[in-house]
């Protein structure tokens, strides 16, 4: 007889593993990514492959040669980071900038903090912001959907503004909303607009979000509170002055709000642990996003909003404890 195995209870384990969570996120991102490929063509595929490959490679190299620990690239977390980063940049971004972004995401934001689970900020978002500040032109040159499909390296003439971008610049020129030509809700909904390669199609992102909820990888708290807050806040502004402020549905569908609310803010590592904490986190993200979009210098505020709220997560975790069973006050 073999020696019996001894350990404390429980003696069985659920099916969910880090691997299944990470690949679940990848599957959930696929519809939005495919929409990006449909609108922006082969360039989107190249950016994605470069991003994923370099993220995985950097993780492998750092773990193997710098930290000298077991490599964990199999768990899929680097793939998720790479895919998210690619989906948050324009498909026209030069490949070497994508590699730099990957290095920032994996090397600085993830590994320097201690690897998986230890990072304070969302790696893909920090990398995106880093690229935005370092290469502002490349990062705000948006290929036009459909028209730019055939282009792989030369996007001259087939670029245009994002809906939020044109809103911002034309408002600054003193036009009223009625005078500004914005894409229709249908285009916003299906994704026939300029923007980062993964953020354009609202319907694809929502499908991914439903899949994540179904698999119980995320809970409803952050996406719902984030989107609802952004809706209410921008709605109030719109009611105050519809000539100056865009309507709430436009704000929800345009830009990176949906990918942010469903995939970036819900990143397990950098979001709060309790239900109320998540709701507060979502509200903070929603308010900050609209504040930056409406009053800030940048047309888009999702990345900054989520990163700022990331910094508050330890505090939120401290302040919002779950209600204990039979708690005696």
């Amino acid at each position: 007889m073999n020696p019996l195995i001894v350990s404390g209870s429980p003696h069985i384990h659920g099916e969910m593993t880090i691997k299944s969570i990470m690949w679940g996120v990848v599957i959930a991102l696929l519809p939005a990514w495919l929409a990006g490929v449909w609108f922006f063509g082969i360039a989107a595929v190249i950016v994605t492959l470069v991003s994923i490959a370099s993220c995985v490679l950097f993780e492998f190299l750092i773990q193997k040669f710098v930290l000298k620990q077991e490599t964990t690239i199999n768990d899929g977390s680097a793939v998720v980071t790479g895919l998210l980063l690619a989906m948050n940049v324009p498909s026209s971004l030069p490949w070497w900038q994508v590699v730099i972004g990957s290095l920032v995401a994996i090397g600085i934001v993830k590994m320097a903090f201690g690897g998986l689970g230890k990072n304070l900020f969302n790696p893909a978002l920090v990398a995106r912001v880093f690229l935005l500040i370092s290469f502002p032109v490349a990062m705000t040159t948006w290929p036009l959907p459909i028209e730019s499909r055939a282009n792989v390296f030369n996007f001259d003439g087939v670029t245009g503004p994002t809906p939020l971008g044109s809103l911002k610049t034309q408002l600054a020129m003193g036009q009223t909303l009625a005078q500004i030509k914005l894409p229709s809700y249908t285009d916003l909904f299906w994704g026939n607009i300029g923007g980062s390669l993964g953020e354009v199609s609202a319907i694809a992102l929502i499908i991914g979000g439903i899949y994540l909820l179904y698999r119980k990888i995320i809970t409803w708290h952050i996406p719902v509170s984030y989107i609802l807050t952004a809706f209410i806040f921008s709605g109030i502004l719109w009611l105050v002055n519809p000539n100056r402020y865009a309507d709430p549905i436009f704000h929800i569908l345009a830009g990176g709000l949906l990918i942010g609310a469903i995939f970036m803010a819900t990143d397990l590592v950098t979001s709060p642990m309790t239900a109320w904490g998540k709701i507060i986190f979502g509200i903070g993200c929603g308010v900050l996003t609209i504040v930056i979009r409406v009053f800030g210098a940048y047309p888009e505020g999702v990345s900054f909003a989520i990163l700022i709220m990331n910094a508050f997560v330890p505090l939120i975790d401290r302040a919002f404890k779950p209600k204990r069973f039979g708690e005696v006050k």
Binding site: I5, I18, T72, L116, G117, T219, P272, M273, P322, K323
Partner: peptide
């Protein structure tokens, strides 16, 4: 083959334990 615990990995702060706890603990 069913007896060993799966390999321990770092906490990814997924909060599954918090939502699974029947006593509302963390």
């Amino acid at each position: 083959e069913e007896s060993f615990r799966p390999k321990v990995q770092p906490c990814i702060r997924c909060a599954k334990c918090v939502s699974a706890c029947p006593m509302g603990l963390e």
